[in-house]
Design a protein around this nucleic acid. Structure first.
Lengths: 248, 248
DNA sequence: GCACCGTGTTGATCTGGGTCAAGGCCCGGC
DNA sequence: GCCGGGCCTTGACCCAGATCAACACGGTGC
């Protein structure tokens, strides 16, 4: 399904002409074809590190399938996840040659990569690409700032509810049943990874998830499979407006 | 002084041809002149709100002098500052018509604004502007992500030290004495604003500032004027690498 | 002069979430 | 089958920072 908001398209990455039209949806030039010549795929297993912070990074790319995380770590080992990369998310930074964060595959992961120099050349020749990247980066900036509110001001329970809301909204595994207003999905993160995203300990994550289960906000089937009987309730628990445009 | 990294230049905003060359430093086209026709200035007094979250926003612009903050507020009043706008910082978002955050002047403030529609037109005609904005937005994204680490994983003392480092690095009021390695500057924020930035209460901010003073990490002259006798020491307290490229 | 208000400091006490520790569940190897 | 290792849960206790409260300081209006 072609998603106007994404730079690359999830499932049909093999049909690249379509996907690359998304890079530059308003542009019909043959630049689209040239992208074909400089792209390649990379596959990673769950747990593998895609790139270490500070390493030379000579590609940019986007997630085709699977989930990766961006994390920062202090010398003493405290780590904070600063981004969650879901299919169609873009990685890398034109104009910078080394990675700013650790990028780790949390599930099996396929990325569609472009060598950086040719990608930058093409960006110069194809103005819409820079504009598309600008839009996407602004969206990411908004998401990062929303997360700052979560990290700085929300309680542990609200943090968990916020994370579940985000995954419910964005994870492609989400299965929505329109009639009952129920959502089901698998948590793509361990308790520890959730803790790193939320600025909590894994024990607190575990306790709060148990509490939300006990209170009927979520239903757990095993440790990872989540059903949300009432999305409005979950959003209330997250401290957001209950009507806050879920699937806009 | 022309700053390659900025979209607009601080002090010499009156000499706009120079400033606008910074918008598009690599571009010599006459688009620069057209910017003249659609710009205007706005002045605000300390404490005034520039725009409320959700309001219609028909301009983009940059800070000429003074300081503004971006804040998000929950229904129950908890607030989190998500950005600090210092001179040369850009505000607004091409492609979106309403403000996502409250923007408040914390000191007297002068902004140089462009009406959004003509600015967007010009962005389409002048590719380098989108590329410059992309670079700036990526810098902001990095800053936001660094702040996520501060909010999620640092102690109150480290948070204060981190904030002081950032202000020391970016505030134009900073007076550096090369020989002694001392820095002096005025805090542009109240204790409450600092608390909102750091995800703390104002009492904790006050206590930690007192503690840093007692330990000799900073010297206070009045409540706002700060001297940092040893920047390396402050960076250590912030939990960053002591050598982390201060004035790069 | 005095009252008032915004800003900041400091003390006393409380508590949400961290820390430490024990144990359960599941899966893969042997 | 048993063992070991991830991953997760739960309990007991502790502490950093929140909360509540009192007061200090400087400016401004009367």
């Amino acid at each position: 399904m072609l998603n106007e908001r994404s730079l690359a398209i999830t499932q049909d990455c093999e049909s690249c002409p379509i996907r690359h039209r998304a890079v530059c949806a308003r542009c019909e030039s043959d630049e689209l074809l040239r992208l074909e010549e400089i792209k390649y795929y990379r596959k990673f297993e769950a747990g593998q590190t895609v790139i270490w912070s500070g390493d030379r990074m000579d590609f940019v790319g986007s997630v085709v399938s699977g989930i990766a995380t961006l994390t920062q770590t202090m010398e003493d080992g405290r780590t904070q996840m600063v981004g969650l990369l879901l299919p169609s998310d873009f990685v890398g930074r034109p104009g910078r040659s080394s990675a700013a964060y650790d990028v780790v595959a949390t599930t099996d992961l396929v990325m569609c990569c472009f060598r950086k120099a040719p990608f930058e050349d093409m960006m110069k020749r194809t103005p819409h690409i820079a504009q598309r990247l600008l839009e996407m980066t602004l969206d990411e900036l908004d998401a990062a700032r929303e997360w700052m509110l979560v990290l700085g001001r929300k309680t542990a329970r609200e943090k968990i509810a916020s994370l579940l809301s985000i995954i419910a909204r964005r994870d492609s595994s989400v299965n929505m049943r329109q009639v009952t207003d129920q959502l089901t999905f698998d948590l793509p993160l361990t308790r520890e990874a959730m803790a790193d995203y939320l600025g909590l300990t894994l024990e607190t994550v575990s306790r709060q998830i148990s509490a939300l289960r006990k209170d009927g906000v979520i239903v757990l089937d095993g440790k990872r499979h989540v059903t949300v009987p009432d999305m409005g309730r979950l959003l209330e628990e997250a401290g957001d407006d209950a009507d806050g445009g879920l699937f806009d």
